[in-house]
Design a protein around this nucleic acid. Structure first.
Lengths: 199, 199
DNA sequence: GTAATTTCTTTACAATTGTTAATGCCTTTT
DNA sequence: AAAAGGCATTAACAATTGTAAAGAAATTAC
């Protein structure tokens, strides 16, 4: 996660893609031309609930989250960090209204591509279908692991796994956001942390 | 879900694929040659925990589930019905040991393809990358909807949604399996059903 | 058709979480 | 520097779920 050289955004991006499949210079040229670098301040909402997700964002620096709103409470569905593609994925793929908001949690350096540009790029660079397939598969695997943790583990176990797996996020993300991501209230997370600290 | 004509397994399969992208006869020939029809009795385990998933299975008839085992209790992660690809997907994609078991819940008619045949088929029919991408995306979307339901809804609401969305499964799947799929115990589901019936 | 097994329901009790509200801490604003 | 706002902690209580065990109902097996 920390292996990304923040100073060379396009280099990082190419490295990430080439972990999936090698790209020749012509392919890389077409890809890099269609992704737009952007700097976004903390707490910016890139896609809002009720809107259609225009773009997906490769993360060079920073973290983002998606959250749902239920009775004016924000419930975090996922936290994205460096090297991932952040998006309201369902909305982007289906081009339908999103039921989630995509928000930066820190100042971010991103590479953005909108939906129609991506469709064009698929035609220009067929290998991108493979990359997109693998990215979709990886996101599925990720989602399934989280879901299985909700089925198999207690909130306390889930917190344990989270802090082992993403020790960095524990520092960078407010606890009430982590709590909702784990499927519990901030109060309950605080109790769990107290319980653990007594051991 | 019930729109599949059970008597024409290959026809159903082609229809499903062509909802994603049209296939010419040569492509279809290569695809259909590599998928093997098989009939499997109820309660057969196609992939077992600890093994590597050799194949994925298109479902012409019947239902299957994946389940995890925790302290000798089986916890259902997903229920597959007609028209879907059933698999221990993570294990199949990564060719690593599965932490879940794939099991038929009824006598099933399936079309199977193993991992190496699929890799060959990707080369023979590049359009399959698109199909695989869309299948992965759909499975991700599905998984994310389930996860969001765990974050946002109570078990009772989850049961409601399940019975509205899959009224057929309510009849065909034992309740203790549905309970674990919803993330609760059979006892708790029984209480929820009683609570609902009083309304 | 009867026995055996599995599944579902019910009960009582323990444990955990949600809810609400109050307090203290920390960061940000002005 | 003071004020304001957001965040984390703690407490008390209500509600829900998990656990364990027993009995009823339904399926499966012989």
């Amino acid at each position: 996660m920390e292996r990304y050289d923040i100073e060379n955004p396009l280099l990082n991006f190419r490295k990430t893609l080439e972990q999936i499949i090698p790209l020749n210079d012509s392919e890389w040229q077409m890809i890099s031309q269609r992704f737009n670098p952007m700097e976004v301040p903390k707490r910016t909402q890139l896609t809002k609930e009720g809107q259609i997700a225009t773009s997906i964002y490769f993360i060079n620096k920073g973290i983002l989250r998606i959250f749902y709103t239920k009775e004016d409470v924000e419930i975090t569905g996922f936290i994205f960090s460096e090297g991932l593609f952040a998006s309201c994925y369902e909305s982007f793929l289906l081009q339908t209204k999103s039921n989630q908001t995509l928000e930066t949690l820190e100042d971010c350096a991103l590479l953005a591509i909108d939906h129609s540009s991506l469709q064009t790029l698929y035609k220009e660079v067929p290998a991108l279908h493979i990359i997109a397939r693998v990215v979709a598969e990886q996101r599925f695997i990720n989602g399934q692991r989280i879901l299985s943790s909700h089925l198999l583990d207690s909130p306390e176990e889930r917190y344990h796994q989270f802090s082992n797996q993403y020790p960095g996020l524990l520092q960078r993300v407010p606890q009430h956001i982590i709590a909702s991501y784990l499927g519990i209230t901030p109060v309950s997370l605080s109790r769990i942390r107290k319980r653990i600290s007594r051991k």
